[in-house]
Computed example of a mutant assay.
Amino acid sequence: MSRTPQQIFESYVHAGALTRNADALAATFTEDGVFEAPLVPADADFPRRMVGREQIRSAMTAYYARTAQDGRVPNLAKSGYVLHTTADPDVFIAEIDTVFDGDGDGDGDGGEGDTTVSLVQIFRVRDGRIARLRDYFTPDLVN
């Protein structure tokens, strides 16, 4: 049975942003899947382009290890998203507003208000998995 855009998106978000599980994240992609963040500078911590499930797994494992101490956890009650289907049944778009509670400066003192991060992701799927993901978010989030 084919998975819906909603199911694919929710699996991807749970594996990545919510649990930071690189193995589970890589499993949401096809074996030859491509994960791109075109706005990210080449020298950023976040990988700009990963090709293949194994590279996605290893690059995201390293990224999650480097950023484990940032203390930012999304507030699901305040965050939201809208999925848009397209004329191509294998393509959908996610508009996302992720809200992080307080401590927007990440120093652990709770000294700032909520931080909202808005982004757009374009998904191309094949056989219920992500074949290509283009993730458009502000590059200063990963510098």
Results as ranks from 00 to 15, higher is better:
Thr138Ile: 11
Ile122Met: 12
Asn21Ser: 12
Asp127Glu: 15
Val91Ile: 14
Phe35Thr: 04
Leu18Asp: 10
Phe123Ser: 00
Val73Pro: 03
Ser58Val: 06
Thr67Ala: 00
Asp101Leu: 06
Gln7Glu: 15
Thr98Met: 15
Val117Asn: 14
Ala42Asn: 11
Gly52Ile: 06
Thr4Arg: 03
Thr85Leu: 08
Ala65Pro: 02
Ser11Val: 09
Arg3Thr: 08
Ala22Val: 06
Phe46Ser: 01
Ala24Thr: 14
Phe123Gln: 00
Gln69Gly: 12
Asp88Asn: 05
Phe29Arg: 00
Asp70Val: 07
Gly111Trp: 01
Ala87Gly: 11
Asp107Ile: 12
Ala22Tyr: 00
Thr28Lys: 04
Asp135Glu: 10
Gln121Asp: 14
Tyr81Glu: 03
Ser11Ile: 06
Arg53Trp: 06
Thr138Met: 14
Val73His: 09
Arg124Ile: 10
Ala22Gly: 07
Ser58Lys: 12
Asp127Cys: 11
Thr115Ile: 14
Ala68His: 04
Asp23Ser: 12
Ala59Pro: 04
Pro41Asp: 13
Glu95Ala: 07
Val34Asn: 05
Gly108Asp: 09
Tyr136Ala: 06
Gly110Met: 03
Asp90Pro: 01
Val13Arg: 04
Thr28Glu: 07
Ala59Asn: 10
Met50Tyr: 08
Met60Asn: 01
Arg48Glu: 11
Arg66Cys: 04
Ser58Cys: 06
Thr61Cys: 05
Arg129Leu: 12
Ala17Trp: 13
Gln121Leu: 15
Pro41Trp: 10
Val13Phe: 08
Gln121Ala: 14
Ala15Glu: 04
Pro41Thr: 13
Pro38Tyr: 06
Thr19Asp: 11
His14Pro: 06
Met60Thr: 04
Asp114Arg: 07
His84Trp: 05
Ser79Ala: 02
Asp109Asn: 15
Asp135His: 12
Glu112Trp: 10
Thr116Phe: 07
Asp114Trp: 12
Ala68Met: 03
Val51Tyr: 05
Asp103Arg: 07
Phe46His: 03
Asp105Ser: 05
Val120Ser: 09
Val40Gly: 06
Asp43Arg: 11
Ile130Val: 15
Tyr136Val: 10
